[in-house]
Design a protein around this nucleic acid. Sequence first.
DNA 1: TAAATTACATGAAACGTTTCATAAAAATCA
DNA 2: TGATTTTTATGAAACGTTTCATGTAATTTA
Lengths: 339, 339
Amino acid sequence: MKKESSTPTMKDVAREAGVALGTVSKVVNGLPVGDSYKTRVEDAIQKLNYQVNSYAQGLKANKTYTVAVLIPNIVDPFFSALAYHINTALLKQKYRMLLCCTGSDSTQEQEYITMAQQNKVDGIIGLTYNPKLVIEENTPFVTIDRSMGAGIPCVASDNFAGGQLAAEKLADFGCKNVAFLRIGSSLSNEPNKRKAGFENGCLSRGLHYEMKILDDSAPYEEFEKFLSEHIHNGKLSFDGIFCVTDRLAYSVIQTLQRLRQRVPEDVQVIGYDGIRLFGNMDYICSTIVQPLPEIAEMCVELLLRENMKTKPPLICLPVTYAYGGTTSENISNSDEIQQ
Amino acid sequence: MKKESSTPTMKDVAREAGVALGTVSKVVNGLPVGDSYKTRVEDAIQKLNYQVNSYAQGLKANKTYTVAVLIPNIVDPFFSALAYHINTALLKQKYRMLLCCTGSDSTQEQEYITMAQQNKVDGIIGLTYNPKLVIEENTPFVTIDRSMGAGIPCVASDNFAGGQLAAEKLADFGCKNVAFLRIGSSLSNEPNKRKAGFENGCLSRGLHYEMKILDDSAPYEEFEKFLSEHIHNGKLSFDGIFCVTDRLAYSVIQTLQRLRQRVPEDVQVIGYDGIRLFGNMDYICSTIVQPLPEIAEMCVELLLRENMKTKPPLICLPVTYAYGGTTSENISNSDEIQQ
DNA sequence: TAAATTACATGAAACGTTTCATAAAAATCA
DNA sequence: TGATTTTTATGAAACGTTTCATGTAATTTA
């Protein structure tokens, strides 16, 4: 009577089917069981509408099938897209995502990690700005875009190649004088290589280039000052700009419009990330696209890989260039993702 | 020896502190315990770096402290912002968010619900397009923007007032002929009231208005056709447009630019939602802002409220208007969020 | 047919908590 | 001081699984 009203357990199924507890467990887990038993159990499961309590499973197995994902926030389109793909990749492996938005705050990041471990997550995927995180030895950890050394694998897009590609594209589209803009807070580690790659590309293609790198605390408006200082007689001395992120590119494009510079006629702009405003809409600018689905898959694969020894310290995945309206190229391939 | 290597349990803490199991439990849960006992237990917890296993707690309490959140996707800025605020509201109450991106697909939505119930979530918050979902009786359920009747509470922004406000603002800013644009797929239920509210506002302010409503399957380009049909001698017959979402507004603004109409000089545009591209950046258009933090808090409060009887069927929360560059108003208040 | 082997169902124990009936200690009162 | 009441620590039982040593039935072999 009382039993009937609450959610049925394996015990109830066993009683209903007239078999032992362990037999039900085997059927539920797909282990070999005699055919007649199997049908009886399956019928009972149907009849009672039984569903396993995965938290009891977790308690027994000392596993939770939950992975904590640490990202600064979920509102920035880059992060939300990343979270989406990680969630998808985890579901494929029957894992759940515990989303932790850290607000880029070290204290909160550490709190989240502790909380994550209290909840006994099976692993952590972290896009973090904190170089000194205390991770328990036995909690698998994979970072995105941040090499933390010491056996913690890092997955990233091929930032160097991406920077190089940006320079090559600007050269292809007729630029002669280009600039690289970066704001420190938006990166600390792997993405640094975007600069090196861009420099390399400029050199090999004979582009004259300039770098403007602001530190964390600087407001985006500093770039307005920098750019306006490079305007003489209403003409900007750059005809191409590579911004370290799409976010920065978006802000720079607005600045350029305020400064009466036309994009892409007067100056072409390329960003990095491959952000779209709404899922399937156009890119917000011409950009180097990160392979987010592949990055997500790789993180999950590494995280769940049993043999720690075989975990490489760094994996770089290939990037592509995509047109987003802020470069001048042939109409023929303006809608395509190429190279 | 073996014990030392694995994560410590309450038993270990009890042994270390020389107290009983129940005493440790009390200390952990903040129940009254003698001072000397308390210190001993706390010291032991510190020493062993003990952390509760919340899944064992959940098993015992038949609670998981997990709430499933069903949203179509996490990439649309409106949904991601919503997810963010729900996550925050849940954390305040010591609950976890299990994010379920349904892709607006009914089958997948149902699958997610079953999965959510397998994982024994304590409740579900759903922004769903599926009118016929099978929810188990005893799983608390709250919807956003969709009234499903039958004791399932719905939380929404005050869509009617929002529509009205949009009309009033357009009137305030000097519009005479306005239009309401809507695409069916983006709403089915509560947001319908935006139209009624807008109509009401237009009538009371003597605005001439026209409605253009496309159904689900129509491509956004249909609006381009509609708008270009209303251009005579290069002049659009509307001087104000209210779009049912910011997403649509964004697309319409791009269309208007293609049609050589200046925003806001020739035509003013107001959207609905209050989307920002990157967390703290400007709104992407002038808009009716939904109170997302309050909506999230309300959902969580209703979901966890014990007494089912006191759950109201519909709660509408107040909206505000915000400037986002696509309306012509006094400079003095252009940066403010106002009534 | 009897003995030896194989196949497979059984159910107790364990996972890490919380709860509650019990027992012990402390405080009060006569 | 001894009896009574109050306070508080104790630890067994239970939550819903999985696992594994045990027992039973079916099959094979001589």
